[in-house]
Deep mutational scan, measured.
Amino acid sequence: GLPEGWEMRFTVDGIPYFVDHNRRTTTYIDPRTG
């Protein structure tokens, strides 16, 4: 799974992105792969 505090969501286009609730940021880069 994802690191603690992270969540995976999808855009309206079906593109996955990642929400970091710890820092309240979003990124398209998987936190597991950097």
Score class of each variant (00 low, 15 high):
G1D: 14
G1L: 13
G1E: 15
G1I: 12
G1S: 14
G1P: 15
L2W: 07
L2K: 01
L2A: 03
L2N: 02
P3F: 04
P3A: 04
P3Q: 03
P3T: 04
P3N: 04
E4H: 12
E4L: 12
E4I: 11
E4R: 08
G5P: 01
G5T: 02
G5K: 05
G5N: 08
W6N: 02
E7Y: 06
E7K: 02
E7Q: 07
E7G: 03
E7R: 01
M8A: 07
M8S: 02
R9D: 04
F10E: 03
F10W: 14
F10G: 01
T11N: 11
T11W: 02
V12H: 13
V12T: 13
D13A: 13
D13Y: 08
D13N: 13
D13G: 10
D13E: 12
D13H: 12
G14L: 05
G14A: 03
G14Y: 03
I15D: 08
I15R: 10
I15N: 07
P16R: 10
P16K: 10
Y17F: 11
Y17N: 04
Y17G: 03
Y17V: 12
Y17D: 05
Y17R: 03
F18I: 02
F18R: 00
F18N: 00
F18V: 01
V19P: 04
D20K: 03
D20Y: 04
D20I: 04
H21D: 08
H21W: 10
H21P: 06
H21G: 08
N22A: 12
N22Q: 11
N22P: 07
N22R: 10
N22L: 14
N22E: 11
R23W: 07
R23L: 11
R23H: 14
R24K: 15
R24Q: 15
R24W: 10
T25R: 11
T25S: 09
T25D: 08
T25N: 12
T25H: 10
T25L: 15
T26W: 15
T26S: 11
T26D: 09
T26E: 15
T26I: 15
T27N: 06
T27H: 11
T27F: 03
T27V: 06
T27M: 05
T27S: 13
Y28D: 13
Y28T: 15
Y28N: 14
Y28P: 12
Y28M: 15
I29M: 07
I29D: 14
I29N: 09
D30Y: 01
D30A: 00
D30I: 00
D30S: 00
D30E: 02
P31S: 01
P31M: 01
P31F: 02
R32G: 05
R32H: 06
R32A: 07
T33M: 12
T33K: 08
G34V: 14
G34K: 11
